[in-house]
Nucleic acid binder design. Structure first.
Ligand code: SF4
Ligand code: SF4
Lengths: 150, 150
DNA sequence: AATATTTAAGAGTATTTTGTCTTATTTATA
DNA sequence: TATAAATAAGACAAAATACTCTTAAATATT
């Protein structure tokens, strides 16, 4: 699996937030309900995003979470790094410790640009862009495809 | 992580076998020793490869495992599929069930060719080829780089 | 035939990841 | 100020992955 479950949930929730972006906070209860993700588990994940200044949260009535900046300024890579870290882009394929150019494994040559490709792909796509495409293309971010980008 | 630990171990062991390819069996004890992988764990993994007809095994003195066909005819993808299955190439990025073209998620468009790229990369590289490059380039397949392709 | 060497198989343990539950803490609103 | 609604935090539980150990089966060599 490319991304951890946590990361996937984080991405889906972020896309939701980006698509409903108009300043107000959205409760995690609503998010977990719409996206079919366990409430408490999602809470933890979003806390990581909040800790990384990608989200803002507010307690109390009408509280919830929202993007900390315009969705255009948050990339998919931001989310991935906040949750899964950069190991996918550092440790890479054979998982040998202390990897890099100095002491490469046989995969290095062929894997390196694929890896960087993926990184660039995540880096050049903003949440806003992805959400827009999702909305316009009626693409799904829930298992059952129930969520319709309201 | 792209590949499971099991898969990584399987790949490293396969590369070793391909590089020492001259018909005789190599004991798993030697493999586990050279590659710094737990003997019993490696045994299980290689059993999967044997079950998939990628390796042949022989019990008893001078027994061990060897490639079941010339290293040129076994691809990296063969090893990966035998151990990790095709979920990486089927379920893909957001892990939504029943994925594919019919009900795509927002990642589909951007991820699909990267995914296929990776698959093709694994499909077009044989163990023989990788081992040759590893040998000639003095690349490492052990954590400490101790193994020197003898 | 006996023995030693090796893989096969399967039970068992440890660690990591994933998910749940309970108890604070904060804040808007009446 | 009291209450209700929400996140924060952390303990706990379950499941998946990674790893270990023991016993059985096969085979080459003596
Ligand atoms: S040598 Fe390169 S390709 Fe191989 S594991 Fe290290 S960083 Fe990845
Ligand atoms: S819709 Fe496409 S990209 Fe998204 S999870 Fe399914 S197969 Fe992968």
């Amino acid at each position: 699996m490319l991304f951890s479950k946590s990361c996937i949930y984080g991405l889906r929730a972020s896309l939701y937030l980006a698509s409903n972006q108009n300043g107000e906070y959205i409760s995690i209860g609503k998010l977990s309900d719409k996206l079919d993700i366990s409430f408490h588990f999602l809470t933890k994940i979003l806390q990581q995003l909040t800790a990384n200044d990608l989200l803002e949260s507010l307690k109390g009535p009408n509280g919830g979470v929202r993007l900390s900046k315009p969705g255009k300024q948050i990339t998919l890579l931001d989310i991935v790094l906040a949750i899964d870290g950069d190991e996918l882009f550092q440790e890479c394929v054979l998982g040998l410790p202390g990897c890099g150019m100095e002491k490469p494994c046989p995969f290095h040559e062929i894997w390196l640009h694929k890896r960087d490709d993926i990184k660039r792909m995540l880096e050049t796509r903003s949440l806003a862009e992805m959400a827009k495409e999702g909305k316009e293309g009626h693409l799904r971010i829930t298992p059952d495809g129930k969520y319709k980008w309201d």
